[in-house]
């Protein structure tokens, strides 16, 4: 009976590296907490621009995640389920932003959406719209860098999901779109949620593409990571406070969402 699932002991070969892993990930956070200037916390937080940067970060990361969901879930379905040619090439292309240095990503976005860019110059001529140095540019930068996380997660979930449910739906007369909505999507919902969380977290921390393509202007394009980086140049203490605020708010949001999801699942 030693090999039942109820055995509470964690095997040593798993326990040791897992402990080292936790320490490696958590100790830097402890370092931030220790170094944080707790006495001047209020003063640092009420500094001009902090609230603005935080609000902008939360709004832009959320919009970027919604945009990624709208575009990324269908893309993941195409990668996982369709039989189109060149799918593996397509998959490799989709993950390019994962390996591209974000600053280069920002330059690449200029080349497409900049006012000299392929799409950007047309937008400028036809509608007088310029994207760089606007909040829209912040959202585009974050979406570009974060969407692959969602696509990869959802594609993994789709591959792991039992395709026989979809086959059954098809034999019962459902077309592929109905099957996707009524069978596939509910089946991979946890994977979509996990992907959305990853995507949101990555968007929230985005720096390189944002400062290149969207620039850094308080109120319109200065997100928390930009504010943190620039604070670090002048006053490391302020940078630590700002990072902790970003961490606390993002962890709080994720925990809150988790409770709601779990609560709904239980109810």
């Amino acid at each position: 009976m030693r090999r039942t699932a109820r055995d509470p002991r964690i095997p040593v070969p798993l326990l040791v590296p897992a402990t080292v892993g936790v320490a490696f990930l958590v100790l830097p956070l402890v370092g931030l907490l220790v170094r944080a200037p707790w006495s001047s916390l209020g003063e640092q937080l009420s500094a001009p621009g902090v609230g603005e940067a935080l609000r902008l970060s939360l709004v832009s990361a959320t919009v970027a995640t919604l945009l990624s969901l709208v575009l990324g879930v269908p893309l993941a379905w195409v990668l996982a389920r369709s039989r189109i040619r060149g799918r593996s090439v397509l998959r490799a292309l989709v993950t390019v932003p994962l390996v591209l240095p974000p600053v280069v990503g920002g330059v690449a976005l200029f080349l497409v959406f900049g006012r000299q860019g392929i799409v950007g110059s047309w937008l400028d001529d036809a509608f007088g719209i310029t994207i760089p140095f606007t909040t829209t540019a912040v959202v585009l930068s974050q979406t570009f860098v974060a969407m692959p996380f969602l696509v990869v997660s959802v594609e993994g979930a789709l591959r792991a999901a039992d395709a026989r449910f979809e086959d059954v739906a098809a034999t019962l007369g459902a077309d592929r779109w109905t099957t996707f909505r009524r069978v596939t999507l509910p089946l991979v919902a946890p994977g979509v949620a996990a992907g959305a969380v990853l995507c949101w977290a990555r968007a929230l921390g985005e720096f390189g593409a944002t400062i290149t393509f969207a620039g850094n202007f308080p109120g319109t394009t200065q997100t928390m990571p930009l504010a943190v980086y620039l604070a670090l140049q002048r006053e490391p203490e302020a940078a630590i406070v700002l990072s902790l605020v970003l961490l606390a708010v993002s962890l709080g949001t994720l925990l809150l969402l988790r409770d709601r999801w779990l609560g709904r699942a239980a109810g």
Partner: peptide, 20 residues
């Protein structure tokens, strides 16, 4: 006048070179 406050001077130069 500024529309963006960049983190270093080379990134200002890049934006000028790209014509953005």
């Amino acid at each position: 006048a500024p529309d963006t406050y960049d983190d270093d001077v080379r990134s200002v130069l890049t934006k000028v070179q790209l014509g953005e």
